[in-house]
Each structure stands twice: as structure tokens, then as C-alpha cells.
């Protein structure tokens, strides 16, 4: 089934997939975490309501979330070129993944933070905590288990996106599945890639859940 060099190819694809997924997840959180925080804090029921900012950010997030990933990837090409100097390969795909994943992450973070009991936030306010102290000392630490579960969901979603990025020559297991499996009709290779991708998803998901559960003090 596997021709010579196939194993090395799969190995490289595996590394590319992990590389793209992890880097773009991290980047997505760099923007998405503060963005999610701002969405919660500036909400009309939040600790520091700023209606116009909340609406504006909500609109931007919804806009980017509504564009299908493949179209976003192509539409972003000029932006991608300006940032990483190329529109093909893993590096270019990371830019697209990052832009696509950030609003997703922001919404995940937002929903995790909204799980924090209002009463706990009020208790902190009654002690004279500032909005910033509430963010860093109440919202984020109290939502940590939920944020970790959210991170596991985010990373597996981004992994799914990264497989699609194979279309723009991004490399990775998804690209191998498309190039060898689909275009050349080697179904066996496609199935192997699908199984491999599924295993990675399972591992990330399980890992995230376990860390979350292990560090949650409510249990």
C-alpha cells in the first residue's frame, strides 16, 4: 500500500499539522482571550458596560465567523502576503487559521466567562475590587476549568480547519489526504489520514478534558 518514502511524507504531514494547529491556536488565544473578556466585561450586564464597543466587537466577531473558512482563506491572500510574504504553505495557512479561529475562540472564552456566578462577582465588588481586579482575580481563575474545556474544543476545531487548508498547499495530513487520496484516487491513503486526524482530535480533546477536570476544585 505505502510506496517508499510514504512514511516520511506522512511523518512530515503529521508535524506540519501539529505545527499549524498549535501555533494558530496559540495566536488565536492571544487575541481571542482578551477579546472574549472585553465582550463579557462591556456587556450591558457586565462589570463595566460600554454598549457601543460591545456591539461593534460583537458585529466584527459575527462577521468573521459567518465567512466560510475556505473563502476567508482565499480572501485573506493579500493580507497573508503582506504578513508572511507568501500565500502558500503552512506559514500562509497559519495566518488564515489565526484569523478564522480568533472570533471562534473569543466566543468560546465569552461563554466560559459567563458561567462565573454573578454573585461571586458581586461579592468581589462589595469588597472594593476594581473591574481589572475582577477580571484577573475572579473571572479568569474561576472560569479556568471551563476555559480549558473550551481550549480543547477550539484546538480540535482549528485542526479541522487546518485539514482544509491543504487546498492552498498548506501541507499537513489534510493535504496528503486530498492530494494522494482524492486527486490520485488512492483511497487507502485517504482513510489512513482520516484515521490519523481522528486520533489527533481524540488525543487533544481527552487531554484538555483531563487537565480541566484535574485542576477543577469544585469536584
Amino acid at each position: 500500500m505505502f510506496k517508499e518514502g510514504m512514511l516520511a511524507l506522512v511523518g512530515q504531514g503529521f508535524i506540519e499539522t501539529i505545527y499549524m494547529t498549535v501555533i494558530s491556536t496559540v495566536l488565536a488565544y492571544v487575541i481571542g482571550l482578551p477579546l472574549g473578556l472585553i465582550l463579557v466585561v462591556t456587556d450591558k450586564d457586565g462589570i463595566h458596560p460600554i454598549s457601543w464597543l460591545n456591539k461593534l466587537l460583537g458585529l466584527i466577531v459575527n462577521f468573521f465567523r459567518s465567512v466560510p473558512f475556505l473563502i476567508l482563506l482565499i480572501a485573506l491572500m493579500p493580507f497573508t502576503k503582506a504578513i508572511v510574504g507568501t500565500v502558500i504553505g503552512s506559514k500562509a495557512a497559519i495566518v488564515g487559521l489565526w484569523v478564522a479561529a480568533t472570533p471562534f475562540v473569543a466566543r468560546m472564552v465569552e461563554s466560559s466567562l459567563k458561567e462565573v456566578e454573578v454573585g461571586v462577582i458581586e461579592a468581589a465588588q462589595s469588597m472594593g475590587a476594581s473591574p481589572f481586579q475582577i477580571m484577573t482575580k475572579v473571572l479568569l481563575p474561576e472560569a479556568k476549568p471551563s476555559l480549558l474545556v473550551g481550549a480543547a474544543i477550539s484546538i480540535t476545531t482549528i485542526l479541522g480547519y487546518s485539514a482544509m487548508a491543504g487546498i492552498v498547499g498548506a501541507g499537513g495530513l489534510g493535504a496528503i489526504a486530498i492530494n494522494y487520496g482524492y486527486y490520485r484516487g488512492q483511497n487507502d491513503i485517504m482513510y489512513v489520514m482520516v484515521v490519523l486526524l481522528a486520533i489527533i482530535v481524540l488525543v487533544f480533546q481527552e487531554l484538555g478534558m483531563r487537565i480541566s477536570k484535574h485542576t477543577d476544585r469544585r469536584l
Partner: peptide, 9 residues
């Protein structure tokens, strides 16, 4: 408070 509102973590 009635529901204590302690930091659970």
C-alpha cells in the same frame, strides 16, 4: 450572602 459566593477555585 445567602449563597456564600466564595471563590470555588
Amino acid at each position: 450572602f445567602q449563597q456564600f459566593h466564595l471563590l470555588m477555585q
